[in-house]
Nucleic acid binder design. Structure first.
Lengths: 217, 217, 217, 217
DNA sequence: CATGAATGAGGCTTCATTCAT
DNA sequence: AATGAATGAAGCCTCATTCAT
């Protein structure tokens, strides 16, 4: 088909096929929703045979898992450059705004289908037992927890706040926001809503000391 | 079959059959989840024939629509008695704890299936245009908004807070909590999580005046 | 299709459909072997839709179970007239010769396919746990055991022989004979072989008293 | 990969690969049964590529054919040392108990799969016409027949018994036992059952003279 | 010799829906 | 009103085999 065929090493071509399958799946969900994500459709759409699909993915679920890891990789890559910030609220908010950005780019349709209560990939408890744990959320939660611990060390957090728990709770809130965004078919400013809700919540975590230093009055 | 058949007016018996189907559907979802809600199962469970099902409901979707409106009716009935409270936080929290209670009683399986991004019944925007608008949430949001407006009137809310918007945001947060609860298959203390997250958020809405009067130090 | 269609009651037609499926399955095995017994083939061959197959049989295995019960019914019917015999050897032999006859009529091809170690329908242990236990063998074994018990009561059996166990062992031997018959594609006189082997075995069960009365010298 | 590659003649390495495939197949059947014997599994288990498999075996069936001849070779080797015994019953029983032992060691799964009416390797009639005639059974039958002939020469057998036929019949009975053992997934004491059934049968072959000399009373 | 990507027919099962009775 | 037999598209997955490299 293309001029690369001549010299393309096997490995590269193989990866391309897997990518074709993956891309087809993403497109299919974006355009038609989760319920259209059938093996047959994936194969037709990607121009790959049924057998090939199962050559690359042992099962349909494995495709989803693969999706997660890919998202995670991309996420981590862009996140490599940490931006140390003194205001823990900003730092946390930024992380989630980045994720919100990703959601918007991925498209409302895909995210909408992806946010199913049956999609255990969204649930850290389930994934905790698997080796390939580490989804978008586990990563962000870890970062958030780090930020909160740092803040606590500096007495910027109210005493009774447990950084780890609060990090998980923030994640839960974000799920609510994205769920709502999906319900409203994107007719909701995702990042603005995140900003508003999270800021109210995060403000509440701050200690008096933090208030004096950062919020002034 | 039974002696009631003789004297029962047609219409009544008809309604009864419809109810049998409906009840079976509810039970089925509660006990086994949405994915078990097949026509065959409904018929077996309700003791009604396949053909009868399609006499009362043109399609499976029609049953679901009917289901939603019925659940809502029952819910509203129980909510009629409002309990005025001076601490807006408690008032709002109570409303949602009541809802959490309802969720727990309804069962994780049903709720889990119900919380789909495709279930527009959860989305106020969509329903605003329909006659049967007003789901569980529109009701609680309205109440919450009322509470917040009342609070604002008494200067218990920070100036920049918009009661209506905050009410909606709280609802979004709650969705996140229930979504998380579903993802974790109920292995999460729903009401405790609500309490924890909402209290942090609601605290943040309160004005200095409110703090002095209710939180003391 | 046929003139019966007009007045044929539902129930009858339903049974006919089930029979069509069943007959198709039997024919298919006879003509092409077990490996051709696929749902698709059954449906095409019987002119019944895929859905109908699953309306009558929950699963492919259920079809086989059904086969067993049918065989059993026929068997029992023909066996209704018991023939009391003083020589337990003859009585037992007759029962198995009858079964051998049935096998021959059913056809070597079907029996050959049917006698698979994977066909748990042939295994009494497995069936013992099911309600619909009672296959061809359980019935014959029961009868044989009865004959042997009766013989023992009359001191026609050697002391150390356990009637129940011996009945089961005879059944095992018969399986061996039919297996061999199948291996040889029927080029083996089934009933003669049964006669020869079983007689040797049964002779050995007899007591001295039996020998004196029945075998003379 | 390893240093042996350098000096190993091509042919040897070739044979090694074929052996690896073969060994993997044997192991696979022993451990997981015939239904696990897929090309994919063989390749994964043997560490040989899919393509290599088809280099050495034109088809899956060719592997099975190869398998049969190999197993037979090994079996015969172990049987070379005959043990002369005066009691023909013991001699024959021992031979089959040895075979039973072999079956147990080979594993219920393989034997279960192997005992198919389609496996003509089990049928002496078929094999008589082929070059590679002589399976496990032809060997044991020959030995048994020899034992019986010897017994007949000494007047230890009832007159009407045909040694060759009886030898074949014993083999048939054993097939029945192994078939039953397979049906019961090995939950049957194979050798005990062999002992019990064969002894009853063999007893019946014995002449009065034999009884007087060996069984005493 | 060796590799492994690619194929596609075929297997079993589920399910919403239609329609004659 | 009620029944239940009949339908067939669709779903996921397995597997022996081929072929370019």
């Amino acid at each position: 088909m293309n001029n690369k065929n001549i010299s393309m090493p096997r490995q590269v071509k193989s990866e391309q096929t897997k990518k074709k399958i993956f891309d087809a799946a993403v497109e299919l969900i974006k355009k038609h929703g989760f319920q259209y994500l059938t093996i047959k459709n994936i194969c037709e759409f990607s121009g790959v045979s049924n057998g090939s699909f199962y050559y690359y993915f042992k099962t349909k679920d494995e495709l989803l898992t693969y999706y997660l890891s890919e998202v995670y990789k991309q996420y981590v890559t862009q996140l490599d450059n940490p931006k140390p910030q003194s205001d823990f609220r900003k730092s946390i908010l930024d992380a989630y705004l980045f994720y919100g950005d990703y959601c918007e780019k991925t498209g409302i349709d895909f995210i909408s289908s992806y946010y199913s209560t049956e999609n255990k990939a969204l649930c850290r408890r389930e994934l905790a037992h698997k080796e390939n744990a580490g989804t978008e959320y586990t990563s962000i939660i870890a970062q958030t927890a780090g930020d909160l611990k740092e803040a606590k060390k500096n007495d910027y957090l109210r005493e009774e706040i447990d950084p780890a728990e609060a990090a998980a709770d923030i994640c839960t809130i974000v799920k609510g926001i994205i769920f709502e965004w999906s319900l409203n078919d994107g007719k909701l400013d995702l990042k603005e809503t995140m900003d508003r809700i999270l800021m109210v919540y995060l403000d509440s975590l701050a200690s008096e000391k933090f208030r004096r230093e950062f919020i002034c009055n």
